[in-house]
Design a protein around this nucleic acid. Structure first.
Length: 709
DNA sequence: TACGTGGCGCTTTTT
DNA sequence: GCGCCACGTA
C-alpha cells in the first residue's frame, strides 16, 4: 500500500540563507535537524520563534514544497508573526503553506469534508458564548430540581464537558477536580453531553472543541481522508507544545502519522495552562512516545541580564517535574541585582511602582518598555488609580475582546442565521433584540420557523451522515507534483459555499404571519424584510453590505434605544463593516470572526496615542518582553493564588508562572509585596510569597522603603 | 417582559 | 467592597 515518493530539490532561487552565521550552534542544530520526530526545548528568550521560522525556511530551501508543511500555533498572532517572518526569509511565495491555529486548521479541513464529518456544508461556528447559550437550552430541559439551592448552569456544563473532551479524563474525575460540589449531577452531565451534541447537529453548528475533535473523528472514520492529509503534511511543526492538551496532541499525532516528521517546540518550564486542559506531560514524554526522537535544547538567552537570569534559574529550580536546564546569559554582567521590595501596605506598593515608573521614564526609558505583571487582574485596581492620579498613561491587556462585545455579536447573528438558517443560537439572539420578545417567545418562534423551513426544503436540511466512503473522493492518487503545487484537495473538493436559500421561497414569506406579541408585529415585519435584503433573490449578499442593511434597518435604532455609549458601538460596527469588505461572501467572513480575537485596527489607533505602560496578567505576558518589569502582589494567597496552596501540582504551575513573569525582564526587575492590605476582602495580613524565599538572598537587592505617606 | 432588590462569592484565557 | 445573578413584582 505504502507509496514510495522521492523528494526533489527545487532549483535554488534567490540568495541562500547563511544559517551558520545567523544562528547560534544550538539553534543551528535544531534548524538543520534531519527528518524524524524532534523535540526542541527552547528556554525563555532563547530565540524559539527564530528557530521555528528558520526551520521552515530551511525546509523550503531544501526543496520541500510549502504545501507539504503544516505549522500549528495556539494564537492567530503567533501564526501571523511566524508566517510573516518566514516570508521575509525565503524568496518563493508561501501560498500553499498550511499555517495557523489548531482551530483554523481543523476548520479548514472540516469545511472540505463537512458531510463526512457528520455535518452539512455551511455549518456555523459557535464561540464560547454561543456554546453556553445552546447549552442553556439543554440545561432548561434537564429540569434540575428547583428546590436545590444551587444547580449547575449552562456555563458549568459547557466548562466541564469541554474540559473532559480536551483532557480525555472521565466525567467523575473532571467533576471531582473542578466542581466536587456538583458530583451528584454526574448523570445529568452525561445526559447533557448527548443532548448538546444533538442540538449542535440540528443547528449544523460546531463549537471550538468540535473543530479539533470532529477532525480527529473524521480521520478515524475515513482513513482515506486521513491518509490524504497525512501524505500531504510531510513536515509538521508545532509551537508552544508545552501547552497542548490531549485532544490537540491527538490532532498532531494523526496529522504526522505517516511521515513522522514532527518537530515540536516548547518550554516545559513555561507550561501555565493546565487549568484549561494543557498537559505538559505531552512535552515531558514526547521522547518516550517517539522512539528515536531527537532532543535539542536551546538554552542561550539573549534577553535578560545575567543577574535576572540567575533569579529566574533559582525561581524554577524547586520544581521537580521538568527537563533540567539552565539559561545561560549572553549579555554582560551589570552592577545591579533585581530588587526585592516589601511594602507596608498595598497603597504604598502602588505608589512605589508609579513613582519608579516615572523615575525610569525621566532617565530616558520609554513607557512602552515597562510593564507591571500580576497574578490576577484585580491585583491591578489600586495601581490603576495611582497611575491615573499621577497622570501615567497605561494600557491593560484584559477585558472584552472586540468580537465578543454584544453589539458585534448581535449584528453577526443576522449574518449567521442567513448563512445557516438552522442556527438556533443565531436566530434566538436576533429575535430577542425585538421589543416584546424574550427567551420564551424566541423559543416559540424558533419552533415555528424551524417547522416551516423543514417543510419547504425537499430534503431534510441535515443530510444524514453518510455511511461508507464517498466514491468521488479518491485521494489514493499520485502525490502533488512539483509542477502543479496547487493544493489538489482544494481543486477537487473546494470548500462548499453553501447557499441555503437557493430554490427556497423568499425569507420574508418564511417569516410572514407567525404569531408574535402585538407590540412586536411591526418589528417582526421589519425583520423579515431586512433578512430578505441579506439574501435578495435567494443569493447571499457580500458581508459588508449585509452589515449595512442590518444597521440601517434595525440595529442602529436598537443601539440608540439600548446603549448609553451608542457612538462608540456605532463606530465599532463601522470598523467591522470595513473589515468585512475584504470578503465577497459571508461564510469566510464569519469564520474569521469566530476564530479571531481582535482586529488590528487598534494598532493603527494607538499610533497617535502617547506611549503607555503595560499592565498585564502574567498569562497574557507570555512571549513578550520589556526593559523593566514589576511583579506585584508576591504574597502567599495572591501569587501563588490561594487555591493552589494545598496542591503540589498546582504550586508547581504557579511557580512556572512566576518563572514566566521573571523572564519577561530585559534590564530591570522589581519584585514587590505588601505586608498589609486594607483593600478587598479577607485577611488583611499578607505573608511574602514562598517563591521569594526560594531565591537565594544574595541574588536580590532588598529595598527598604520609607518616606512620608 | 422589564425592572428593582437582596445574597453570594470572588484566578488565569485561546479558539 | 462590589458586581452579578436569582428571584420577586408590575
Amino acid at each position: 500500500m505504502a507509496r514510495q515518493y522521492t523528494l526533489q530539490r527545487a532549483a535554488p532561487t534567490g540568495p541562500k540563507i547563511d544559517y551558520a552565521a545567523e544562528l547560534n550552534a544550538e539553534q543551528l542544530a535544531a534548524v538543520t535537524a534531519p527528518p524524524g520526530p524532534a523535540l526542541i526545548i527552547a528556554g525563555a528568550g532563547s530565540g524559539k520563534t527564530r528557530t521555528l521560522t528558520y526551520r521552515v525556511a530551511y525546509l523550503i530551501e531544501n526543496g520541500i514544497l510549502p504545501h507539504h508543511i503544516l505549522l500549528l500555533t495556539f494564537t492567530n498572532k503567533a501564526a501571523r508573526e511566524m508566517l510573516d517572518r518566514v516570508a521575509a526569509l525565503v524568496p518563493q511565495p508561501l501560498d500553499g503553506l498550511w499555517g495557523g491555529t489548531f482551530h483554523s486548521i481543523g476548520n479548514r479541513i472540516l469545511r472540505r469534508h463537512p458531510v463526512e464529518a457528520g455535518f452539512a456544508a455551511g455549518f456555523s461556528i459557535l464561540d464560547r458564548e454561543d456554546a453556553v447559550d445552546l447549552m442553556d437550552e439543554v440545561v432548561v430541559k434537564l429540569e434540575l430540581d428547583p428546590h436545590e439551592k444551587r444547580t449547575p448552569k449552562g456555563e458549568v456544563f459547557a466548562d466541564v464537558l469541554s474540559y473532559q473532551l480536551n483532557t480525555g479524563f472521565s466525567l467523575s474525575d473532571v467533576l471531582a477536580e473542578k466542581y466536587p460540589h456538583f458530583l451528584q449531577y454526574r448523570d445529568q452531565f452525561a445526559l447533557a453531553r448527548s443532548r448538546y451534541e444533538k442540538k449542535k447537529q440540528e443547528a449544523n453548528a460546531l463549537d471550538f472543541d468540535d473543530l479539533l475533535e470532529k477532525t480527529v473523528a473524521l480521520f478515524r472514520k475515513h482513513p482515506h481522508i486521513a491518509e490524504h492529509y497525512q501524505r500531504q503534511f510531510q513536515f509538521v511543526l508545532v509551537d508552544e507544545y508545552q501547552d497542548t492538551n490531549h485532544l490537540q496532541n491527538d490532532f498532531i499525532e494523526l496529522l504526522s502519522a505517516r511521515h513522522h516528521n514532527v518537530m515540536v517546540v516548547g518550554d516545559d518550564a513555561q507550561s501555565i495552562y493546565s487549568w484549561r486542559g494543557a498537559d505538559f506531560h505531552n512535552i515531558l514524554e514526547f521522547p518516550k512516545r517517539h522512539a528515536g526522537a531527537q532532543v535539542h535544547k536551546i538554552e542561550t538567552n539573549y534577553r535578560s541580564t545575567p543577574e535576572i537570569l540567575a533569579v529566574a534559574n533559582a525561581a524554577i529550580a524547586p520544581n521537580k517535574k521538568q527537563f533540567k536546564k539552565a539559561l545561560r546569559a549572553t549579555r554582560a554582567a551589570t552592577d545591579s541585582r533585581p530588587a526585592l521590595i516589601p511594602l507596608p501596605d498595598s497603597g504604598q506598593q502602588a505608589a512605589l511602582v508609579a513613582q519608579r515608573i516615572l523615575e525610569l521614564h525621566e532617565e530616558g526609558m520609554p513607557l512602552e518598555e515597562m510593564a507591571v505583571l500580576y497574578r490576577a487582574h484585580f491585583h491591578s485596581m489600586e495601581l490603576q488609580m495611582e497611575l491615573t492620579r499621577r497622570g501615567v498613561p497605561f494600557e491593560i491587556t484584559s477585558g472584552l475582546r472586540f468580537f465578543e462585545q454584544a453589539h458585534i455579536k448581535d449584528v453577526s447573528a443576522f449574518l449567521k442565521w442567513t448563512v445557516n438558517p438552522r442556527d438556533e443560537v443565531a436566530f434566538k439572539r436576533m429575535a430577542r433584540l425585538l421589543p416584546g420578545i424574550g427567551a420564551k417567545s424566541a423559543d416559540t418562534l424558533w419552533a415555528q420557523v424551524g417547522e416551516r423551513f423543514r417543510s419547504k426544503t425537499q430534503e431534510p436540511a441535515a443530510p444524514a451522515p453518510t455511511e461508507g466512503e464517498d466514491p468521488d473522493w479518491s485521494v489514493d492518487d499520485e502525490p502533488p507534483s512539483a509542477l502543479a503545487p496547487a493544493d489538489r484537495a482544494t481543486r477537487e473538493r473546494p470548500e462548499t459555499i453553501a447557499n441555503p436559500w437557493l430554490g427556497m421561497p423568499p425569507i420574508k414569506d418564511l417569516l410572514a404571519g407567525l404569531k408574535v406579541p402585538t407590540k412586536t408585529v411591526k418589528a417582526w415585519e421589519q425583520l423579515a424584510y431586512t433578512l430578505d435584503e441579506l439574501a435578495p433573490g435567494g443569493k447571499l449578499a457580500p458581508p459588508a453590505q449585509m452589515i449595512g442593511s442590518v444597521l440601517e434597518a434595525v440595529y442602529d435604532d436598537y443601539m440608540l434605544a439600548n446603549f448609553p455609549n451608542y457612538e462608540a458601538r456605532r463606530e465599532d460596527l463601522g470598523t467591522l463593516a470595513n473589515f468585512a469588505k475584504q470578503y465577497d461572501s459571508p461564510q469566510p467572513f464569519l469564520d474569521q470572526l469566530a476564530l479571531m480575537t481582535s482586529l488590528d485596527s487598534d494598532a493603527a489607533q494607538r499610533k497617535d496615542d502617547p506611549e503607555r505602560v503595560t499592565l498585564s496578567s502574567v498569562h497574557q505576558a507570555k512571549g513578550l518582553e520589556w526593559r523593566a518589569v514589576f511583579v506585584i502582589w508576591l504574597a502567599e494567597g495572591k501569587f501563588p493564588t490561594a487555591r493552589s496552596l494545598d496542591n503540589d501540582a498546582a504550586i508547581e504551575e504557579e511557580r512556572r508562572l512566576f518563572y514566566v513573569a521573571v523572564t519577561r525582564a530585559k534590564d530591570e526587575l522589581y519584585l514587590s509585596y505588601p505586608c498589609v492590605s486594607y483593600s478587598g476582602y479577607g485577611d488583611p495580613l499578607q505573608r511574602p510569597s514562598r517563591f521569594l524565599a526560594e531565591i537565594p538572598r544574595e541574588l536580590l537587592e532588598e529595598w527598604q522603603v520609607g518616606g512620608v505617606f
